[in-house]
């Protein structure tokens, strides 16, 4: 019935690596945000897996819940900023955003 926890941890490690590759490689702001979400999800998987062994206080799951809420707040603010950046620069490619002057 119960899976081996190491498999979960391996999947989470792979997900984190892919998210990191997306953040490093992609040029589009929104895809970079997606990579950050993937890394947060990988951390959440780890928290949930270790929280199985703490069935009374489930601290891992609570922390994962708070991580989710903060990630939602972060992506809302980030997309609002991306929208303003697009209105000003007419592009959202990170390589082309090289001016600080407004």
């Amino acid at each position: 019935m119960i899976m081996n926890s190491y498999l979960f941890l391996t999947v989470a490690a792979a997900l984190f690596s892919i998210g990191l590759a997306i953040v490093l490689l992609k040029r589009h702001v929104i895809v970079v945000l997606m990579g950050i979400e993937l890394m947060l999800n990988a951390a959440n998987i780890n928290l949930a897996v270790f929280s199985q062994y703490d069935p009374n206080r489930i601290q891992g799951q609570m922390l994962a819940l708070f991580v989710m809420v903060v990630a939602a707040a972060e992506s809302a603010v980030a997309l609002a900023i991306v929208l303003q950046v697009y209105r000003h620069y007419k592009t959202v490619q990170l390589d082309e955003l090289n001016e600080l002057r407004f």
């Binding site: 999800n41 949930a48 799951q61 989710m68």
Partner: peptide
């Protein structure tokens, strides 16, 4: 990831994942 949460006995987290994300 929501499915993995269910398998890790975090069912509330899975539903929250689907609703929030």
């Amino acid at each position: 990831v929501a499915g993995l949460f269910v398998l890790a006995s975090a069912d509330f987290l899975a539903v929250a994942q689907i609703m929030i994300y």
